[in-house]
């Protein structure tokens, strides 16, 4: 999916071109290409912008406008694991805000921050559709519900935070 799970290889021009070519026949290919680039490299690499702009006949500025609009796309790699904590209402009703605050405080991070050892980036997310088993979090595309402090500890330990 959209979450990087492992350290990623430096962007390789041939791979970038292959990803662009594989999707350019789609109707509205830009988002699928950006997702594919991010899946491959953990972010949308700078090196992809020129070939992408050329292939889709858009300006670099337009491209930047699109990439920066969406919360998902990163212009630099995240930590080895991405922990998304739901901040939305149903999770708040079950103590989600305190869970998020405690987690950030313990890791010494703000939202979007990455632990010093590069293990975990913490992102806010607004609903994971797990609102009947709140509070909910997602680690690299795996969902967890009814998360309490102990469960969070275990998840962080597993991720090497």
């Amino acid at each position: 999916m959209t979450q990087p799970t492992a350290p990623v290889a430096p962007p390789d021009r041939a791979e970038i071109d292959a990803i662009i070519a594989a999707h350019s026949g789609l109707e509205g290919p830009l988002l699928p290409i950006l997702h594919a680039l991010q899946d491959a490299f953990g972010h949308v690499p700078q090196a992809a912008l020129a070939p992408l702009a050329e292939a889709l006949r858009v300006t670099r500025a337009e491209l930047h406008g699109v990439i920066s609009f969406y919360h998902d796309f990163r212009e630099a790699p995240a930590g080895r694991h991405v922990l998304k904590i739901c901040r939305a209402e149903a999770c708040q009703a079950m103590g989600g805000a305190a869970l998020a605050e405690d987690t950030l405080r313990r890791l010494g991070l703000d939202w979007h921050g990455t632990t010093g050892n590069g293990a975990v980036t913490v992102e806010p997310v607004y609903c994971l559709g797990l609102c009947a088993c709140a509070p909910a979090v997602m680690v690299d595309g795996r969902v967890h519900g009814r998360v309490d402090a102990a469960r969070m500890d275990a998840l962080l330990a597993e991720a090497g935070a």
């Binding site: 509205g28 290919p29 988002l31 699928p32 889709l56 969406y70 919360h71 998902d72």
Partner: peptide, 28 residues
């Protein structure tokens, strides 16, 4: 049909913003 994946913008649930996003634009 095709499955297309959003990119984390709540406003892209609004139908016209969604269409812009499908077309590969900012989801305004």
């Amino acid at each position: 049909m095709e499955i297309r994946v959003g990119a984390g913008a709540y406003v892209c649930g609004e139908e016209t913003s969604l269409l812009n996003s499908l077309e590969g634009r900012r989801g305004v």
